[in-house]
Amino acid sequence: MAKPKILITRGWPAECEARAARDYDATLNADDAPLDTDQMRAALADYDAVCPTVTDALPADLFEGSPRAWIIGNFGVGYNHIDVAAAKAAGIAVSNTPGVLTDCTADIALTLMLMIARRAGEGERMVRAGAWHGWTPTQLIGTKLSGKTLGIVGMGRIGIATARRAQHGFGMKVVYYNRSEVAAERLQGLDATRLPSIDAVCEAADMVSLHLPGGGENSGMIDAARLDLIGPEGFLINTARGDVVDEAALTAALEAGRIRGAGLDVFAKEPHVPDALRHLDNVVLLPHLGSATAETRAAMGHMVLDNLDAFFAGKPLPNPVG
């Protein structure tokens, strides 16, 4: 029996590519170059499974015309780059990789909090530019995390992991908003208060950290009004999806001092980062590093393949989407 024909759209960890090549008729992307729309359309028509990443847009029109693909195995937990409803209507299953990147993404959220609160990005740029002329009592004065209030928007796996790190490591008070009730056992050992709205979290917190899906009604949900609620002493952290923040409104708030700073690992139109943001000192910008550890990226690739294995064996998907 012929092995299922699969396409991996970007370069994966070597051990995952080796497994894919062993178990499937796999096409790898040796150049690690993003596919354009026509290439992605052709892939859906030519392969039994396509394994995209966040860099691959799969809008509704790509699923027209009865494509060959049976499953999309997404390399990542977020899937707002895929029109899941259109895929489902075309008879194509979609899976993702939840859980395995929780700890590393939470680590990056804390990294951003520390960097922006302690002005580490500014200091690193100063040293590299040869502009540091020695210690002074008033140089690059930041603020402590200890004792501050962290507001989590989206209390899922990553939100909870971030809250635990902040509270147990820095003694931060935690408030949060989540659309649905969070089971008490998931919050065991964490002293966190659920607030009735995103607005309430923005008002209450010194540091607001975003952990919710992009797209749909979440697009632009952190707008000028909510940035004003965070206030001139507050900080915004985003390790979720870039489109949940109105980048123009954020830039204006940072320029005017309506919020104190921001730490961003994701952007609305990656890899594009607006020039105005790049030129501000009171923002830390990272190149989507949330899951970027060897252990996590390998675990993600293996989870994609686990989903494919189950699907082609006629078993339930371990990680279905939609």
Rank of each mutant, 00 (worst) to 15 (best):
H81R: 07
G11R: 15
E17S: 12
D243I: 09
A204K: 01
T97A: 02
A90I: 11
Q139T: 12
A192Y: 07
H168D: 14
E17T: 11
I237W: 00
R241D: 03
L264N: 03
D191K: 12
T193A: 14
H168V: 12
A224L: 10
P318G: 00
I6L: 10
F311A: 00
L44Q: 08
D306S: 12
V100Q: 01
S146Q: 13
R179E: 06
T105E: 08
G154H: 12
A240I: 10
A129I: 12
N178L: 07
D61Q: 13
D309C: 02
E217H: 10
M115N: 07
I108V: 14
V153D: 05
Y47R: 07
S146P: 04
T162D: 12
I72N: 00
T27S: 11
G242L: 02
V175Y: 12
G301K: 07
L190I: 13
V283G: 11
W135S: 10
A240K: 01
A120E: 14
A313I: 05
E217S: 13
L140T: 04
L140R: 06
A268T: 15
L308F: 05
L44Y: 03
V182H: 09
D38A: 15
A2C: 07
E122W: 12
F267G: 04
R68G: 06
I72K: 01
S219A: 15
Y177S: 03
H302I: 03
A262R: 05
R241Y: 01
E255W: 08
Q39W: 07
D228E: 15
L101E: 00
A45N: 11
I198M: 15
L236K: 08
G130V: 13
A292D: 02
L35P: 03
S209A: 11
E255D: 10
I237N: 02
H133K: 15
G142W: 04
A262L: 08
R165C: 09
D31I: 07
P13A: 14
R194S: 11
A87M: 03
L150T: 00
D281L: 10
H81P: 08
K5I: 04
N178P: 04
G257C: 05
V201D: 02
E64R: 05
V174W: 08
D23L: 09
M40A: 12
A42D: 14
L277P: 03
T105A: 08
G156C: 08
W70F: 05
V245G: 01
A33Y: 07
W132F: 15
P320G: 05
D265F: 09
E15K: 10
H168R: 15
P271A: 10
P137K: 04
N96V: 09
D61A: 10
G314I: 13
K315Y: 01
A276P: 04
L110V: 13
N218K: 11
A161S: 13
A310G: 01
F311R: 00
V283T: 09
R258N: 07
I92Y: 05
M207Y: 13
Y79S: 02
D46V: 04
R19H: 08
G169I: 06
T239I: 02
